[in-house]
């Protein structure tokens, strides 16, 4: 198989893994195995996966509470992710963070963050290290469309622009911030105009085709890596589920939702691309079965793991000792 096709197949596999993990997480939530808030990534898979394909393992990523897709795309263990949602000791952060706070140092995943906009200055700080130490890594920072209104967004971009920091801000415009459509949170139709105010480069495109996402994010990543500074990328997308599990989604019509599912399902699109490139249906089905087994294994692992350990309650409020 060609390298191009191989890459597409790998990306589809990850997207399908995210899709199926999310569906199972939703089921586990309705069974009471997952608590708190659960924000699903279904409909937006091409963005995390395409972006991951545009960077190196040595680059860093930071995101919002809608973080499962990003963690899985980075390479976090599906078992550890699911166990975290289940609040187990084997979870990515030992049951301390849950759905909204997936951190994975090994995979350079700097967390899911739950205060809107709060993580953008962090992303600038991570990129600051690259500049400070003259290192070549790039930082990707995911955010929602609703986040472009809060101070953290503006201050983060301000600093990234001023010091030409190697960071790419990826605004996943899924057209709603909770129950509010974009038209009622900003008078702008194009969010990238906000980049100009802080001297950032900008790009804007539909984000359902994983190849398009990869190639366009690559441009911004190359700009960052070669000293060209930060970029604000607006990726147009749509979430197929409610804002979180507790949102019945009454603010949008069933027709609108169905329309996007029909026309803009990133998983279906990637699958069709595989078929169109001549990959045999049986080969795709085999890959999907493999993913199914992996997801089932993650659920079983999460189910059977021991609950979060009592000793974790006060083990981590402070770092002990000194690392220098």
């Amino acid at each position: 198989m060609s390298k191009v096709l191989d890459e597409l197949q790998t990306m589809y596999r990850t997207m399908y893994l995210i899709r199926r993990s999310e569906e199972e997480a939703a089921r586990a939530y309705s069974q009471g195995k997952v608590g708190g808030f659960l924000h699903l990534y279904i409909g937006q898979e091409a963005i995390a996966v395409g972006a991951e394909a545009a960077i190196e393992k040595t680059d860093y990523v930071i995101t919002t509470y809608r973080d499962h897709g990003v963690a899985l795309a980075r390479g976090s263990s599906p078992r550890a992710v699911m166990a975290e949602l289940f609040g187990k000791d084997t979870g990515l952060v030992r049951g301390l963070g849950g759905s909204m706070h997936l951190f994975d140092a090994e995979h350079r995943m700097l967390g899911g963050h739950a205060i809107v906009g709060g993580h953008l200055p962090l992303a600038a700080g991570v990129a600051f290290r690259a500049r400070y130490m003259k290192e070549s890594f790039v930082t990707l920072c995911f955010l929602g469309d609703g986040a472009t209104n809060i101070g953290g967004f503006h201050e983060g971009l301000s600093l990234a622009g001023l010091w030409k920091l190697p960071v790419v801000f990826i605004c996943e415009n899924n057209r709603y911030s909770m129950g509010t459509p974009l038209s009622r949170t900003t008078p702008l139709a194009d969010l990238t105009v906000k980049a100009a105010g802080y001297g950032l480069a900008a790009d804007r495109f539909e984000g359902n085709d994983v190849i398009v996402v990869r190639d366009r994010i690559k441009l911004a990543v190359e700009r960052a890596r070669s000293g060209g500074g930060a970029t604000l990328v607006e990726v147009l997308t749509y979430r197929f589920r409610g804002h979180s599990m507790s949102d019945p989604g009454k603010y949008r019509s069933a027709e609108e939702l169905e329309e996007y599912k029909r026309k803009a399902d990133p998983c279906a699109l990637a699958r069709n691309q595989l078929v169109a490139s001549g990959i045999a249906e049986e080969q795709i089905a085999a890959l999907e079965r493999e993913v199914e087994a992996q997801v089932a294994d993650s659920i079983q692992f999460a189910d059977e793991s021991a609950p979060a350990a009592r000793s974790s309650i006060d083990a981590f409020a402070y770092a002990s000792g000194s690392s220098v």
């Binding site: 608590g35 708190g36 609040g87 187990k88 049951g95 301390l96 963070g97 849950g98 759905s99 706070h101 609950p307 979060a308 009592r310 974790s312 309650i313 006060d314 409020a317």
Partner: peptide
């Protein structure tokens, strides 16, 4: 308790 709130229900 004098710690940030953990997620897991038992904690």
């Amino acid at each position: 308790l004098d710690v940030p709130m953990p997620y897991a229900l038992n904690l």
